[in-house]
Measured scan of single mutants.
Amino acid sequence: RALPCPAHVVFRYQAGREDELTITEGEWLEVIEEGDADEWVKARNQHGEVGFVPERYLNFPD
């Protein structure tokens, strides 16, 4: 997929490290980079905060 792209959060995730982003179910993010580890992506939330989130917690519109 082309980046950046929108993504809808389907599961809540609490950041466990400083470089991760806490996300809430129902929130929209902008995915800006593929992650440095499998199944992680770097995203920006509506407040401009950036961090890594688990890709499987997101839904990408067609």
Rank of each mutant, 00 (worst) to 15 (best):
A2I: 15
A2V: 15
A2H: 07
A2L: 13
A2C: 14
A2P: 14
A2F: 15
A2R: 14
A2W: 09
L3D: 04
L3M: 10
L3G: 03
L3R: 06
L3A: 02
L3V: 05
P4L: 03
P4A: 04
P4I: 05
P4C: 06
P4S: 07
C5F: 06
C5G: 05
C5A: 04
C5H: 09
C5S: 04
C5V: 05
A7K: 00
A7C: 05
H8T: 08
H8G: 03
H8W: 12
V9W: 01
V9R: 01
V9F: 01
V9K: 03
V9I: 01
V9D: 02
V10H: 09
V10Q: 02
V10N: 06
V10W: 07
V10R: 10
F11M: 15
F11C: 13
R12Q: 11
R12N: 14
R12K: 15
R12G: 14
Y13D: 03
Y13H: 10
Y13S: 06
Y13T: 03
Y13K: 09
Y13N: 05
Q14M: 10
Q14G: 05
Q14C: 05
A15F: 00
A15T: 02
A15G: 10
A15S: 09
G16P: 03
G16C: 14
R17A: 12
R17H: 14
R17V: 07
E18D: 14
E18F: 07
E18R: 09
D19R: 11
D19Q: 14
D19S: 14
D19V: 15
D19W: 05
E20Q: 13
L21E: 02
L21Q: 00
L21D: 01
T22L: 02
T22W: 00
T22S: 14
T22F: 02
T22G: 06
T22H: 04
T22M: 03
I23R: 02
I23D: 02
I23Y: 00
I23C: 07
I23N: 00
T24P: 01
T24G: 07
T24I: 11
T24A: 10
E25H: 08
E25A: 09
E25M: 06
G26M: 02
G26A: 04
G26I: 04
G26P: 02
E27F: 01
E27H: 01
E27G: 00
W28S: 12
W28D: 11
W28N: 12
L29Q: 02
E30T: 11
E30I: 06
E30C: 06
E30M: 10
E30S: 10
V31S: 02
V31M: 04
V31P: 00
I32D: 02
I32V: 11
I32H: 04
I32Q: 06
I32R: 01
I32A: 01
E33V: 03
E33R: 06
E33A: 11
E33T: 06
E34S: 10
E34D: 05
E34G: 09
G35S: 11
G35R: 11
G35Q: 05
G35Y: 07
G35K: 10
G35N: 07
G35D: 08
D36G: 11
D36K: 15
A37Y: 07
A37D: 11
D38C: 11
D38F: 10
D38P: 13
D38N: 12
E39S: 13
E39F: 14
E39G: 14
W40N: 06
W40M: 14
W40P: 02
W40S: 07
W40A: 06
W40T: 10
W40G: 04
W40I: 09
V41E: 00
V41G: 02
V41Y: 09
V41K: 05
V41M: 08
K42I: 15
K42G: 02
K42V: 10
K42F: 08
K42W: 08
K42Y: 05
K42H: 03
A43D: 01
A43K: 02
A43C: 12
R44P: 03
R44Y: 03
R44I: 12
R44T: 07
R44F: 02
N45P: 06
N45T: 05
N45G: 03
N45W: 00
N45I: 08
Q46R: 12
Q46E: 11
Q46H: 09
Q46S: 12
Q46A: 14
H47Y: 08
H47F: 07
H47R: 15
H47D: 13
H47P: 03
H47L: 13
H47S: 14
E49W: 06
E49G: 08
V50T: 10
V50N: 02
V50P: 01
G51A: 02
G51F: 03
G51W: 00
G51H: 00
F52N: 09
F52H: 08
V53R: 03
P54S: 10
P54G: 06
P54I: 05
E55S: 11
R56N: 14
R56S: 14
R56K: 14
R56F: 09
R56T: 13
Y57R: 05
Y57I: 06
L58A: 02
L58K: 00
L58I: 10
L58V: 07
N59H: 13
N59P: 00
N59Q: 13
N59I: 11
F60P: 04
F60Y: 12
P61V: 13
P61C: 15
P61E: 10
P61R: 10
P61S: 15
D62M: 08
D62L: 09
D62K: 09
D62W: 05
